[in-house]
Design a protein around this nucleic acid. Structure first.
Lengths: 133, 133
DNA sequence: GTCATTATGATACCGCGTCTCACATTAGCA
DNA sequence: TGCTAATGTGAGACGCGGTATCATAATGAC
C-alpha cells in the first residue's frame, strides 16, 4: 500500500483489500479470482487496481501457453516467469546469463532492443508428482 | 497450401486467398488486416484458418508490448521474434545460444521446461531513422 | 454426377479489459 | 470537527479478439 501512497494515490478500502489478498498469492492470480474473493469490490476497480500496480511495477502480466492472461506479484527486481502448463502456477527466476545474452543478441539483430518478454513453460514438481497416481 | 493438403485439409478459395496474402506479409499481420483485404471471407473463417496454420506450425501468434496480438509467418524452423514497439513490425531471429541457455536454466529451476516464449521489443531501423526528422 | 464429408458465413456469444457517469471517499485545511 | 476539491468507486455499456452454433455450400473420391 505504501507503494501507492508514495506516488500520491489514495489509500482506499478496495485497494487495501486487493493488495492484502495479493500478498498471499504466491503463484499468480487472475482478475476473476480476486473478484470472487472480494465480491463487494466492483469489477472495474479490480482491473483498475491491477493496472495501477502494474504501472508501479509490483505486478506483472503474463500469458499462459494458450495465451490467457495471468498476473503475478513481483518479488525480485528484474526477473522472468515460469508458468506451469498443467496448473498455471507461476514462478519467478533471475538469470543474469539471460541479460548478458540479450546484449549479445542486440548486436546481431537490426534495431535497438528496448525490452523483452520471456516466459518458460514448465510442468511443475507438484503436477509431475500428481501424474504418477 | 500444400502444407494443409498434406494433412488432409481441403483446398478452398478462402484458404488459398488467405495464404496468398500472408506470403506478402513480411512483418506480421492481424486478423483484422486480412479481413479488410478479403471482405468476401467471413470473420470466423479468417480466425479458423489462422488457427489451422498455427497448428500446422507455419504461423505464430505473438504479443505486442501492450499485449495486443499479432501473427507472423514462420520462415525458419525454430526462432524467436523481435517486435518494433513503434510500428509493430515483426522480425525473426534464431539464437542457438538461447537454446543452450534454456537447458542451463532448466537445471536451475524446479520442474521440467516444456516450452518457452521469447519476444524482444525493439525500435526498428526504419522507425529510428524516421525519428530524426 | 452423386454423395458423404468438410468448410463456410452469419450471428450469437464469451472473456478480458476499458469507458462513462453519477455518486461516494479521501485527505488537506480551516 | 466540518468543508471542499480532488480522487476513487460501482454499475453497466462498450470494444476487441476469438469461439460455438447451425443451416447452407463447396469439395473431392468414387
Amino acid at each position: 500500500m505504501a507503494v501507492l501512497e508514495d506516488r500520491g494515490y489514495r489509500s482506499t478500502a478496495p485497494r487495501r483489500a486487493i493488495i492484502e489478498i495479493l500478498d498471499g498469492k504466491l503463484d499468480g492470480f487472475t482478475a476473476e479470482e480476486i473478484g470472487n474473493e472480494l465480491p463487494w469490490v466492483g469489477r472495474a476497480t479490480i482491473f483498475r487496481t491491477i493496472k495501477l500496480l502494474r504501472e508501479v511495477g509490483i505486478v506483472c502480466r503474463l500469458n499462459l501457453v494458450d495465451g490467457s492472461p495471468r498476473y503475478s506479484l513481483s518479488r525480485v527486481e528484474h526477473h522472468h516467469h515460469t508458468v506451469c502448463v498443467m496448473c498455471g502456477n507461476v514462478g519467478e527466476f533471475r538469470a543474469a546469463t539471460m541479460e548478458r545474452l540479450m546484449r549479445i543478441i542486440g548486436n546481431e539483430i537490426p534495431g535497438d532492443i528496448v525490452g523483452h518478454r520471456i516466459e518458460l513453460y514448465v510442468t511443475c514438481e507438484r503436477c509431475v508428482a500428481g501424474e504418477e497416481n
